[in-house]
Design a protein around this nucleic acid. Sequence first.
DNA 1: AACGTTACCGCAAACGTTTGCATAAGAGTA
DNA 2: TACTCTTATGCAAACGTTTGCGGTAACGTT
Lengths: 339, 339
Amino acid sequence: MKKETTTLKQIAASLNLSISTVSRALNDHIDISEETKRKVKREAERLQYVPNILAKGFRKHKTNIIGIIVPSVIHSFTATILKGILLESEKTNYTTIIAETNNNPEKEKDVLNTMLQFGVEGILMALSKHTRDISPMLHALKKRPLILFDKVSSKIPCTQVVIDEVAAAANAVEHLVNIGKKRIAIIKEREDSYNSEKRFEGYKQTLKKHDLPIDESLILSTDDSSINEGKRLARELICLKDKPDAIFCITDDFAIGVIKTLKKFAIKIPDEIAVVGFSNSSHSTIIEPNLTTVNQPGGRIGKLAMQQMIREIESNEVFGTSKSIEIQTNLIIRESTFL
Amino acid sequence: MKKETTTLKQIAASLNLSISTVSRALNDHIDISEETKRKVKREAERLQYVPNILAKGFRKHKTNIIGIIVPSVIHSFTATILKGILLESEKTNYTTIIAETNNNPEKEKDVLNTMLQFGVEGILMALSKHTRDISPMLHALKKRPLILFDKVSSKIPCTQVVIDEVAAAANAVEHLVNIGKKRIAIIKEREDSYNSEKRFEGYKQTLKKHDLPIDESLILSTDDSSINEGKRLARELICLKDKPDAIFCITDDFAIGVIKTLKKFAIKIPDEIAVVGFSNSSHSTIIEPNLTTVNQPGGRIGKLAMQQMIREIESNEVFGTSKSIEIQTNLIIRESTFL
DNA sequence: AACGTTACCGCAAACGTTTGCATAAGAGTA
DNA sequence: TACTCTTATGCAAACGTTTGCGGTAACGTT
């Protein structure tokens, strides 16, 4: 397409000044007289000069681009975090580029390398669900700051911005105990999911704390957290001869599925079975009864992650140490546990 | 952070070759012997050479970055389109950068300029809701290809990827007529919303076609489409002494709010009042009764927009002409209009 | 023996910007 | 007058890459 870009050279020529003077004038260098500055700026305006970021970045060894890698942008919690990141980045002079991995570790590696090659200043990322080989991340970490959020791994020695999953889950289960529930089931993901295991941890801790037995038949796992899986597993639970009186779902999607099934079988919520979810997704106030759920402040996660990123970029230390930034959650109590 | 980047110079030195030979070898230029190529590539590998994109882009006047501007990434339909765009961009060697406008025209202008200054090859954008001054877009169009999607404006002479809003709405209303409804209300946005007006257009056309009167009291407008506004306006409608027997909502959010209110007042859906929405958002199968809604293939929109963008970038024509790419929608009939 | 081809490769310029250093003019001081 | 010190400006190199052009050697063709 079009070119006709104005350069410093043209401004200089039209003003009978040198390129360096023009450059300095535009950058408000002290060496330049006010009058010259004014003239230069006016001429730049007139010629619609826009600095060539490429040349500038090339010269100064700076791209001012921060890479963001997430499994999927349509995931609502991810989107919330993204919003936090974008909002924060607007305040700075850093631009962001976003890429998806679709939970594919192979893709994850590719994207990571592409970004590095592109010269990003740092990388903010949520790991894909089944990432096992962390070497791509370790490799990246050798060249640039890397910050993990949401889906993290303690094996990677970098800053991690997370919610206190254990406490959050414990809090949710505690609430169920408080309203008098004794047989609390959990629907979780399989063992290789970091977040899921942490929440499971909180579940177990709370049961122990209240001397409630941990009943294997009430612990259900599945591959992907979806509404359909929630439906299916709920059906399993209500077929038990010794039914649960509450179900703690480690995601809202599970919970939505569970509620759908319970309603289908005319089981009273929360009287017969209470349900709590995790995320406070927009679905939780659409479903009836409204879902009690753990609110994760995604925006705040994004914001903090971005702030930390800037800090790491602009410091010249070497950031190869683990550091965990934990964010508090709160339980939002709605009809699915309380009438 | 770290630097120690390897450059062509270093490879050249270590191999006793000239920089240009190394460059050509890595780019598989015909002038270079296979043996040299092999040696160079092996050395590049060994030294972990990554080309400096900045220098390259600077030299070749190419960034290979495409800018994406949307009101908000958390909006679910936007996210779907985004996914389509990202998916398509992965197949190419273009990178994308995403920015939000938060429906603020001022911000929109800023972001647009920043992207241009950054040297993006083209811009994919959904206008903010209340953009009135189109001069920033016209200005951008003079420098780079611009493609609009979702929220577009026919006043901007560029390619626009849209759904056939009129037909989609007409189709939805037609369905209501077919199930025997005669007093069909519409909940829409105010006049300055392009999409809303188009859908309103389809609504009016269909009523006329079936010789149904257009009753002003059944036409409700509001500023922002939200669940709460849907609730509020539904209440207005059911307070009418001559109630509607169907409500066509130009967004799913409106429809969700409407359904909530109707249920609250124990109005039977769809027998007394049927409801149809627009977007097929994930909410539409969470709410009960499930919502009949217009399915907009967001992924396809994104994909086509991206493909067209590549075409415009790589062609050297001047793209200042309007061109509309229309995408077909389909109505998904669920419980809110049909039992 | 002289010439044309072919296959490889290097030189050096160019892209637009920043910046260390040099320089010039004027002001101040002795 | 001669000097230093400011203040304001220009020169030129540098960043890493690509690329037009030119060069050289080796080989085949007359």
